[in-house]
Computed example of a mutant assay.
Amino acid sequence: MGSTSLLEVASPLNAEEVTKVIKEETLLEVQNLKMHFPIKAGIIQRVVGHVKAVDDISFRVRKGETLGIVGESGCGKSTMGRALIRLYEPTDGKVLYDGIDITKLPERELRPLIRKKIQMIFQDPYASLNPRKSLGNLLNEPLKAHGLYANLKERNEKIKEILDVVGLHSSSMNHYPNEFSGGQRQRIGIARAIVLNPELIIADEAVSALDVSIQAQIINLLEDLQSQFNLTYIFISHDLSVVRHIADRVGVMYLGKLVELADKDDLYAEALHPYTQALLSAVPTIRQNGSVNRDRIILKGDIPSSSNPPTGCVFHTRCPAKIKACETIVPQLKEVQPNRLVACHLYNNPQIV
């Protein structure tokens, strides 16, 4: 999907009109989100530190788009996804859904206002389904909890309709999760996510546990559902090839920080942040006639601990392009080109380079 730069929007409109355009196209806005887990030690379990799994990240998700979030294992992307829907209570920051800060809502208000509108597809199709419940009960439960449809018959009709949409037969309603294959279980997870007619779905490594051929089927299903139900996705994955296929924009995370955010085609054609460049250089490619293979960038050292991240830029301990300022000054995520945001002193702080 194409997108319009805020810089391009701003030129013919006044400030009030620009704000209106941004509000109309934005479904979810994350402001300075933090998710810090306490580290406790001793007999009295005194807090001696914090694991900064998500540390001060901000971004917007536009209606109808797919925002891909990528990064190495342990970078905080899955934690971020769970914090967005308050499976984890955020340490700080705001999550604005249609202008409502859902981090401040009590649970009694969260369920009717938000829970139906935001759903999640989990990574493990084996662990995310209750083995003691049949498929029919798994899908009936959320409908009943939200008071949708008058009786069991109407709910079952809705369930049959959803099963047909995700490629499962209605005759399987009485079967249990252990009777399905991995791909079928993930289809059940998708059915459970869309049965409430949500607007936003967070897919957390939704295909990483599946065979490659099944991955393609699930990705195609997600794209079809997006078109059919006008869904918005946050697609979390460590697989850059999969994200390239499904995403409109891509955000790159490292050690709890968002280091780059750009339109998919721009990012894959020419990454700006040194970490993104290293990630893309590791993606296997087939050399075409006349094309040049991307040079492999080998990062030195190990990923620092999120309980004791480096000062300044968290990537500076492994960055091949670091400068002195990277060691002490935290780079801010700024728009350095239309629709391209980068947290790197090489681009957004030219006075210190």
Rank of each mutant, 00 (worst) to 15 (best):
G74S: 03
F37R: 03
N339V: 06
F235W: 13
Q186T: 03
E109F: 01
D164Y: 02
R82Q: 15
S3D: 13
P38L: 00
I22W: 00
L210S: 09
D204E: 05
V18K: 05
A325Q: 09
V95F: 04
Q277I: 06
I303Q: 08
V314Y: 14
D55E: 02
E107V: 14
A83P: 14
V9Y: 03
S181M: 03
D263H: 00
D302S: 15
S291P: 02
H273M: 12
A269I: 01
N308G: 04
R82C: 11
R86A: 10
V61G: 02
L346D: 05
Y149S: 07
A145M: 13
G147V: 12
H316K: 13
K52D: 00
V342Y: 01
P320V: 05
V330C: 07
L210M: 09
Y97L: 15
K104N: 11
R132I: 00
L113D: 09
Q277R: 14
K322N: 09
T91A: 07
K153L: 03
T328S: 13
T79L: 11
A150I: 03
I190T: 04
T285E: 14
C75P: 08
S291Q: 12
A15E: 15
Y254A: 08
G99P: 09
Y268H: 10
A343L: 07
R108G: 03
G301M: 10
T311I: 02
K20E: 07
S11G: 04
A193H: 04
I297A: 08
I298V: 13
F229T: 06
N308Y: 10
L6M: 12
E24A: 12
V243W: 06
N140E: 14
D98S: 10
E260Q: 01
K144A: 07
K300V: 10
V95W: 12
K52E: 08
R108P: 00
N230E: 11
E205F: 04
V166S: 00
V336C: 11
T19I: 14
S241L: 06
T285G: 05
I85F: 08
A209Y: 11
S58R: 00
R340T: 15
P274I: 10
H245E: 12
L333I: 08
Y149I: 01
D101W: 00
E29G: 02
V166P: 01
D224A: 14
Q184E: 06
R46F: 01
A271H: 09
Q215F: 10
V336P: 05
